[in-house]
Design a protein around this nucleic acid. Structure first.
Lengths: 203, 203
DNA sequence: TCAACGTCTTGACAACTGTCCAGAGGACCG
DNA sequence: CGGTCCTCTGGACAGTTGTCAAGACGTTGA
């Protein structure tokens, strides 16, 4: 019988569980960070016991890499709406700055985890592939914004995708750190800085 | 008797040991990262046993904070020579870009540790004070370069110290990551990007 | 009804962690 | 020489870690 509850094949159900576990692990990782998130702690805040992790994942690193891949899907097209809806260069700049601020407000733990994992990548090679893939995707995401911004302004970008990403990511990271340590003007500054930085990216 | 070997007071000798231990710990931290550097591993690569750490430091965190403070002293005035010796804006840009590249070549482990610890700061409040103090000093260091560059070019900076630091730090961080994962054009790109970014920081 | 299977729990394991401490070793001073 | 202090060692501790395996549970199919 294929009711609404059992309409999935066993393989799909398996994959579904993997996703659920990874999603749960993702929030715990965002709370504790890579260094202090143990498998027992991860399982504790899910609906499963600590042993189940090795049923769905080969390794702790296998779990974390799956988490990273899952994270990627949630944030890769976050600013596409901003790009599509923009009618003017200034409007795009304002909307983009606002979207960045809201990202920190809504998902600060997720993004501090991202910077944590990217730093871990500099030490452990196992994370390399997954993290670098995301980094490249984020670079493309930023470049879509910058290219569209230049287009609307009728000018050409002064920098390449890599530099533009590193640059805006650095400003964002600084604002995230400021926000997390309680500097109350961190987000206001971010908004102003993004609006001032974008024009300098044009020739 | 106050020979050359025992000319220091006991208090000075104590402080000297602390510095030696912190220096040794610093290299181990740069090798393993914050998550995997245990006290035993730190002591193993020093000339002491693992128990001595609690004789000179109250805590593991006390040790790490001391390491961070020590690290600060070594890199805070790294680019002052570049600023002082510069005769033209383009010359300053070239020398600064070259100095950044050499920093990665010479001390990549130290700097990946820095980014690791800054990410940890987003999770654990105990590191906050020491890390934020260094971050502010680095911001000033970058600002000295940018201000001098604007001065030589006869223009005014288009951004404030915070944005300028976040921006250049982001580009540097991207290059460090690229270098550590073996992207062979990472440092060449860094050189080119810094030279192209600096002019855009002027009005 | 019984057997087989996929799923999950529970407890165990060896290794490792930060921390502490009893005491060895040596330098210094009376 | 004897005593006192500082320095440092090595082992022990309680707790935590990732990993694994034996078995319980519930569903399915014959």
């Amino acid at each position: 019988m294929t009711t609404a509850a059992t309409r999935r094949t066993p393989a799909e159900k398996h994959e579904e569980r993997r996703r659920a576990l990874a999603a749960s692990a993702l929030t715990t990782l965002g709370e504790l960070g890579y260094a202090r998130a143990s498998l027992r702690e991860i399982a504790k805040s899910s609906e499963f016991s600590h042993g189940v992790v090795h049923y769905y994942f080969h390794d702790k690193l296998d779990l974390i890499v799956s988490c990273v891949r899952q994270y990627k899907a949630t944030c890769v097209h976050r600013y596409d709406g901003v790009v599509d809806d923009a009618a003017s260069a200034d409007g795009l700049a304002a909307a983009f700055a606002d979207a960045l601020v809201r990202t920190i407000l809504d998902e600060a733990p997720m993004h501090r985890l991202w910077y944590d994992l990217r730093a871990q990548t500099m030490f452990t090679a196992e994370l390399r592939e997954a993290v670098l893939a995301i980094d490249a995707t984020l670079e493309e995401m930023v470049w879509r914004v910058v290219a569209r911004y230049a287009d609307l302004a009728g000018a050409a970008p002064a920098l390449g995708p890599r530099a533009a990403y590193g640059l805006l990511d650095g400003v964002f990271q600084q604002a995230l750190l400021g926000h997390l340590v309680g500097r109350d003007d961190a987000l206001v500054d971010l908004d102003a800085e993004v609006r001032r930085v974008l024009p300098t990216l044009l020739v």
